[in-house]
Design a protein around this nucleic acid. Sequence first.
DNA 1: TATTGACCTTCACGTAGCGTTAAGGTGTAG
DNA 2: CTACACCTTAACGCTACGTGAAGGTCAATA
Lengths: 254, 254
Amino acid sequence: MEYTVQKLGQMAGISTRTLRYYDEIDILKPARMNSSGYRIYGQAEVDRLQQILFFRELGISLDKIKEIVTDPSFDGAKALKEHREKLLDKRKQLDLLIANVEKTIALTEGRITMSDKEKFEGFKQKMIDENEKKYGKEIRDKYGDEVVNKSNEKVKNMTQEQHNEVTRLANEVTETLAKAFKNGDPASEIAQKAADLHKKWLTFYWSEYSKEAHAGLAQMYVDDERFKAYYDKEQPGTAEFLRDAVHIYTGFRK
Amino acid sequence: MEYTVQKLGQMAGISTRTLRYYDEIDILKPARMNSSGYRIYGQAEVDRLQQILFFRELGISLDKIKEIVTDPSFDGAKALKEHREKLLDKRKQLDLLIANVEKTIALTEGRITMSDKEKFEGFKQKMIDENEKKYGKEIRDKYGDEVVNKSNEKVKNMTQEQHNEVTRLANEVTETLAKAFKNGDPASEIAQKAADLHKKWLTFYWSEYSKEAHAGLAQMYVDDERFKAYYDKEQPGTAEFLRDAVHIYTGFRK
DNA sequence: TATTGACCTTCACGTAGCGTTAAGGTGTAG
DNA sequence: CTACACCTTAACGCTACGTGAAGGTCAATA
């Protein structure tokens, strides 16, 4: 079977421009050109393109892909591992970014009061770091130990406050869940509220929240006897009920 | 105080090129030019630059930043929220990518046997999706329901196997932890092994693992009575011990 | 057979946010 | 007077293509 740019592109779900570009950078050359200068691809090129697209989906640069697909002795596994490290770093960065953006939103929305603001030790630390970088010792001489000490103190306060809040939330989850369980529908409004409270409670412990992780944790409550017993102690079946509610809440489908 | 490009750049930790670029795109103009055409910045420009760099660190494009810092009535909070959504999408993508890269590594390393390969329903589904996209109905007519059914069956097997494995791991965590607790040092080799096993156990429930989340969960074991009791039921203090071991394991410092 | 319309080709500019020469003027210390 | 550090503008480079523009090719149809 032979293909022109457009046919191959349609098959692979990529543009003709991309194919010409891959030709240009010597990553995928057509099998031959016909008499009119059209690019003609054969089966071997289709296979190679699949490889290329596979690696591309892993976010690997075309340069690396070129090495992988042209040199058969190239250590693809090693490249993949290095790539994984880069991805993990990237995610770490991204998580920090998200946390900072969320804190900023909270600040601008005024959801956090003035005294609360100071609780963002990390945020403040970041500010301090930045200031240090920008103004060197000037600022440190001016505020120095005072700021650091005050800040540490606030962290202690926050921990105390957080603990109160998290305990309150945990109770609320239990209560709401018990009520919801009585009507028996995990999709009901009150059951969904329980799932939402559960999420809020969770976010005190998780630096980042993801629906997948939340759904996974809910499943864990059922799978692990130790946790299951806790949720079931008042009314057997509550663990499953919470799991179902959370799965609906997170949009998770088995 | 007045600054030339280099002085301001050093203060802010950015290059002179960046400052000229910001001038070029009208995001930060110097206060004035001196007789030789040098850029001279004043205090107002320093403040503005700080704002710019702040938003830049949040990963916001210079275009958006321009809107934010030039138009004081611009809804910065809204922009931030939109930006947050983009970041969250990005992280979702990234998580998928990482999962796939890790699966691919496992495959190429042969850590997964042939029969195990088929357990990657998600992976296989991805392959199927790709094939569908590439070859349309051809492939579905050919393999169609057969593949789907077989695949679903495998998932069930996997779930069963996973459950066995996770139960085994949970026991191993408990045993190792009990042994480690006797010598009392959360930094000891055996305590760290317990933390490692705990991580392995966790990864059955979390689609992504992060040290922060792991450390957070460990803290949760202590803070929440319901969980604390489980860990402490054999030997009081085990929950704290596990938390300390995990915090050391993850390199988490309070 | 001429025309239409869908296909193909090669340039070549645009994207974001600067890094990096290159070529040349300015400021100041010795 | 000469170094040498600083400043300027101009312009290409980076990724992985998208998006025309200008023009040739192919198959079907009037």
